[in-house]
């Protein structure tokens, strides 16, 4: 059982309990954030780097965190921005064209130990990678995290209507891809 966020935030602001509170926050959210990042960057090593950077940023900024939003929403916001920055840097570093980059991401998925092209769940992963980055985030947050649009709107700073349209569009594209694979 994880402690309450408000209690953890209070403990974080007290120097004597700061590290212990932070440790508890990491333990509470590490898996959720890891999977959110992993579905975007695919590779475990990359996901590990991005996740560590996220928590370092959290450590540095948590004292200034205003409790008018939920800690959970704030953490997802940082993780999403870190993912997008990472993918942007990857694109800049790579000399590959967009098509080749898409193929490289598909190759990363196929490189996973458990990959099985006959399984619909793996085809689903390949289909998700065909989506534009922001649409991919919306789909993942709704489909896997079952995040309400209201909350997602605070994470992505986008209107609920736009998010809903994006999710519907993404789901249809994915279904089309799976059927034709």
């Amino acid at each position: 059982m994880h402690p309450d966020d408000k209690e953890l935030l209070f403990q974080f602001r007290v120097p004597a309990t700061k590290e212990r509170a932070f440790n508890a926050i990491v333990k509470k959210y590490q898996e959720k954030l890891y999977w959110h990042i992993r579905r975007m960057v695919i590779n475990h090593e990359d996901a590990n780097d991005v996740l560590q950077n996220v928590f370092i940023k959290v450590w540095n900024a948590l004292e200034q965190f205003r409790e008018d939003s939920q800690l959970y929403t704030w953490l997802y916001r940082i993780a999403t921005n870190e993912c997008l920055s990472f993918l942007e840097q990857q694109k800049k570093r790579s000399a590959l064209s967009m098509e080749d980059l898409d193929a490289a991401i598909s190759d990363k998925i196929k490189a996973d130990q458990g990959f099985d092209a006959n399984q619909l769940e793996w085809r689903l992963q390949l289909a998700i990678q065909q989506l534009p980055e922001k649409q991919r985030i919306v789909f993942n947050l709704r489909y896997y995290e079952e995040m309400p649009y209201e909350e997602m709107s605070r994470v992505l700073d986008t209107s609920e209507g736009a998010l809903k349209a994006s999710y519907h569009h993404a789901a249809r594209k994915i279904e089309e891809f799976i059927k034709n694979y």
């Binding site: 440790n23 890891y34 996740l51 996973d112 619909l120 769940e121 992963q125 789901a171």
Partner: peptide
């Protein structure tokens, strides 16, 4: 999409054993 709704929402990617232990 009834097709997507019918799929199991499980994580297919593999993670090194014990990765989350001691991550904090």
């Amino acid at each position: 999409s009834p097709l997507l709704a019918g799929l199991q929402r499980r994580t297919v990617f593999s993670v090194p054993a014990g990765y989350f232990d001691g991550l904090a």
